[in-house]
Amino acid sequence: TTVVVGNKKYTFDNPEAAEKFAKKVAKKLGATVHKTNGTFKVK
């Protein structure tokens, strides 16, 4: 599962961990999490 934050990509074996990370980053940046085909995008 990939999490994309700006131009950085983070890969997780565990989708739950990926989602948690994405939400944490989004909260910090005041952004939102978008899920597309198993990829979480923070923007």
Rank of each mutant, 00 (worst) to 15 (best):
T1N: 08
T1H: 09
T1D: 05
T2W: 13
V3Y: 01
V4Y: 14
V4S: 07
V4T: 08
V4N: 05
V5C: 06
V5E: 01
G6D: 04
G6A: 06
G6R: 06
N7E: 08
K8T: 08
K8D: 04
K8Q: 09
K9T: 13
K9E: 08
Y10M: 04
T11R: 14
T11G: 06
T11L: 13
T11W: 13
F12Q: 00
D13H: 11
D13Y: 10
N14D: 12
N14V: 07
P15I: 10
P15H: 09
P15G: 07
E16N: 11
E16A: 12
E16R: 13
E16I: 14
E16G: 10
A17N: 09
A17Y: 10
A17H: 09
A18R: 01
E19L: 14
K20D: 09
K20F: 12
K20L: 11
K20S: 11
F21E: 00
F21V: 02
A22H: 01
A22R: 02
A22S: 04
K23G: 07
K24F: 14
K24Y: 15
K24C: 14
V25A: 07
V25S: 03
A26R: 02
A26L: 02
K27N: 08
K28R: 12
K28V: 08
K28H: 09
K28Q: 10
L29F: 07
L29M: 10
G30W: 03
A31F: 11
A31G: 15
V33M: 05
V33I: 09
V33S: 02
V33L: 07
H34C: 15
H34L: 13
H34W: 08
H34S: 11
K35M: 11
K35A: 07
T36I: 15
N37K: 07
N37F: 05
N37D: 12
N37Y: 05
G38K: 05
G38W: 04
G38F: 04
G38R: 05
T39G: 15
T39N: 15
T39K: 06
F40R: 03
F40M: 07
F40W: 14
F40D: 03
F40L: 15
K41M: 15
V42F: 04
K43W: 14
K43V: 15
